[in-house]
Simulated scan of single mutants.
Amino acid sequence: MILRTGQRMVFIGDSITDCGRRDVAAPYGSGYVSLVRALVDARHPELELEWVNRGVGGDTVRDLAARWDDDAIAERPDWLAVLIGINDIWRHYGDRPDEAVGIEEYERTLRDLLRRAVDATGCRLILGDPFFIEADRSVPQRADTDRYAAVVAGLATEFDAVHVPNQAAFDRVLAVSPATRWADDRVHPHLPGHAVLADAYLSALGVS
């Protein structure tokens, strides 16, 4: 395992990370962040890790940029886990297409944010793929999501980051079950869907 005693784990992203952490489920949310924290702490209490959730529902990478200094750099993470991109894509398919973020802007902005965080804090990065809980890769939103996930995978290599293949994790369960088992809207997971994500994070971090 690559985690070390006393490290500060900061998670940042959109509603999948937020998951009520600013209100009814403060301070960690009721999703994958809370599950990862609980399982790591239970399996390795000797590490005494610090956990911070800075997800904000509805965020795109543009919104992340606007709060990056306060919610990422100022938190002085040892590990910074970033999951962003779902809204960047989804807005194109909804009633706010002007807020969608094209893939070139997405890659450029995310690379800049990651570089700033690493240069300012010396943190290690954990980069999670955006995902769409849909098995048919020809569905346009799924096809777009795969393209954005490939950007994240490339950035993970560029920054020597831990890469979390979230889409692949959902593809594994979708091979034997319907999407409705994991989410009503193919985006916001039920608790078992968050467990799929948490399992992917634990595997990527080598937590057993």
Rank of each mutant, 00 (worst) to 15 (best):
R43L: 14
E46M: 11
A81C: 07
E75N: 05
V24D: 14
A42M: 11
P27W: 02
Y28M: 14
G31W: 02
P97M: 05
L64S: 01
D41F: 10
R62K: 12
A120F: 02
Y93G: 07
Y106N: 01
L49V: 12
A120D: 04
V82E: 00
R43N: 08
L35C: 05
V52D: 10
V36R: 06
A117G: 02
T109C: 07
R124V: 01
Y106L: 04
T109Y: 05
Y106T: 02
D59V: 06
L49M: 10
G31V: 03
A26P: 10
R37E: 09
R37V: 09
W79I: 09
A26L: 08
W68C: 03
I84M: 02
G55L: 04
R108C: 10
T109Q: 08
D63P: 05
E48D: 15
T60W: 02
A25Y: 14
D71I: 08
E48R: 15
R111A: 04
N87Y: 00
V33G: 06
A74M: 13
R43I: 10
L49H: 11
V61H: 07
L80H: 00
F131A: 07
I103M: 14
G20S: 13
G57F: 08
R115L: 06
A72Y: 01
E99P: 05
P27G: 06
D23A: 15
D71F: 11
P45C: 09
G31F: 03
I73D: 07
L35W: 07
R108E: 15
E46Y: 10
L114K: 00
R111D: 03
V24E: 15
R62F: 12
D129M: 10
G29A: 11
E99T: 11
E46A: 15
D88A: 03
E48L: 13
R108I: 07
G85Y: 02
A81Y: 01
R62W: 13
V101I: 13
L110C: 00
W79N: 11
E107G: 13
A120W: 06
R21M: 09
V118E: 01
